[in-house]
C-alpha cells in the first residue's frame, strides 16, 4: 500500500498551479471569445450585440460585397509574395553574413533595425518614399531621368505591391536573424564533409543545410504567417485602403464594419471567415507536423 503510485494529476503541482491563470485566460478569452463571436455572427447585431437570429444573411452579404472579395484577393497576393520573398531575402542575407564578413554586428543591426519600428512608422515612411512628388520618382527626375515613373501607391493595379515593399523592408531582418541563428547551429563538420566530397556550396545549402534547419523554418513560418494574416496597421498608415479600395485587407474590413458601419454582425461574420481560412490551412498542417511526430516517437 505504501508504494501506491502518486496520482498523475498531482505531479508537478507548482507548475500546474502557476499555469492556471494562463489556462483560464486562454479558455475564457480566446476560446470563449471565439465561440461568442461565431454565435453572434449569425445575428443582426448593430452597434451593440443583439440576439436577433438571422441565419446566414451576414455571410451572404459578406460574399456578395466587392470590397471583401478585393480584400481577400489582396491578402492572397500580399501573403504569398511576402511569404516567398521574405524567406528568400532573409535566407540569402543570412547566408551572406554567415561568410564570416567584417563588421557583421553592424550589418546585422542595420538590417534588423526596421523590425524595431512600428508598422505605422514604416507605413508613413514608405508612403513618403513612394510619393511621386517627393519620393523616389522625384529624386530620379531630379537626376535628369525625366520620364522616370514610379508611383505604385497611386496606381490601383499595383498598389498592393507598394505595401509589399514596406512589409518586406520591415520583415526581412527578423527572418535573417532567425536563419542566421539556424545556420550557426549547423555543425562545421557538415561543411567540411561536403567540401571533401566536392559538393558545390549552393547544393550543400539546398540539399543538406536547409533540411537540417527545419525547426528554424517552422518557427519563422509561424511568425511570418501570423504577421501576414493580421496585417492592418501598415495598410491604415500607408494607404488607408486606397486608391479607391485597391489595398483593402480583411482585418480592415472587420474593423470598419464594427466601428464605422456600426454593424457588429457583419464584422463578426468577416472575422469568422478569417478564422475559418486560417484553420483550413493550419489545422491539417499542424496535425501532420506535430501529431505525426508523437506517433513516430
Amino acid at each position: 500500500m505504501a508504494s501506491k503510485r502518486p496520482n498523475q494529476l498531482f505531479r508537478n503541482m507548482n507548475a500546474k498551479v502557476s499555469a492556471i491563470p494562463m489556462i483560464v485566460t486562454a479558455l475564457f478569452v480566446f476560446v470563449g471569445g471565439t465561440a461568442w463571436t461565431i454565435v453572434y455572427s449569425f445575428t443582426k447585431s448593430g452597434l451593440l450585440p443583439r440576439m436577433k437570429w438571422i441565419g446566414l444573411d451576414q455571410y451572404e452579404r459578406l460574399w456578395g460585397t466587392k470590397r471583401w472579395l478585393i480584400a481577400i484577393e489582396n491578402l492572397a497576393i500580399y501573403g504569398l509574395s511576402m511569404l516567398v520573398l521574405v524567406f528568400v531575402i532573409g535566407f540569402i542575407l543570412a547566408a551572406l553574413i554567415d561568410q564570416k564578413i567584417r563588421f557583421e554586428n553592424t550589418v546585422r543591426t542595420v538590417i534588423l533595425y526596421p523590425y524595431a519600428m512600428s508598422f505605422v512608422v514604416t507605413g508613413l515612411v514608405w508612403q513618403w518614399i513612394l510619393n511621386p512628388e517627393f519620393g523616389v520618382q522625384n529624386i530620379m527626375r531630379g537626376l535628369g531621368w525625366q520620364s522616370f515613373t514610379f508611383d505604385p501607391l497611386y496606381n490601383a493595379e499595383i498598389a498592393i505591391f507598394g505595401v509589399l515593399i514596406a512589409g518586406l523592408w520591415q520583415g526581412s531582418g527578423l527572418v535573417m536573424v532567425l536563419m542566421l541563428a539556424g545556420l550557426r547551429g549547423i555543425d562545421q563538420e557538415v561543411w567540411k564533409a561536403s567540401r571533401v566530397d566536392g559538393i558545390p556550396a549552393w547544393k550543400t545549402y539546398i540539399f543538406i543545410v536547409i533540411p537540417m534547419m527545419r525547426p528554424v523554418f517552422i518557427t519563422t513560418l509561424v511568425l511570418v504567417v501570423t504577421g501576414i494574416v493580421k496585417v492592418f496597421d501598415l495598410i491604415v498608415a500607408q494607404t488607408g485602403g486606397g486608391p479607391g479600395i485597391a489595398t483593402e485587407v480583411p482585418a480592415k474590413y472587420v474593423y470598419d464594419m464594427m466601428f464605422r458601419n456600426n454593424n457588429l454582425g457583419q464584422g463578426f461574420a468577416a472575422s469568422t471567415m478569417m478564422l475559418v481560412t486560417v484553420a483550413i490551412i493550419v489545422v491539417p498542417w499542424a496535425i501532420l507536423e506535430f501529431g505525426g511526430k508523437k506517433n513516430n516517437g
Partner: peptide, 10 residues
C-alpha cells in the same frame, strides 16, 4: 461611401 470611393478612384 465605399461605392463612391471606388467609383471615383477607378
Amino acid at each position: 461611401n465605399t461605392l463612391f470611393t471606388e467609383f471615383f478612384a477607378d
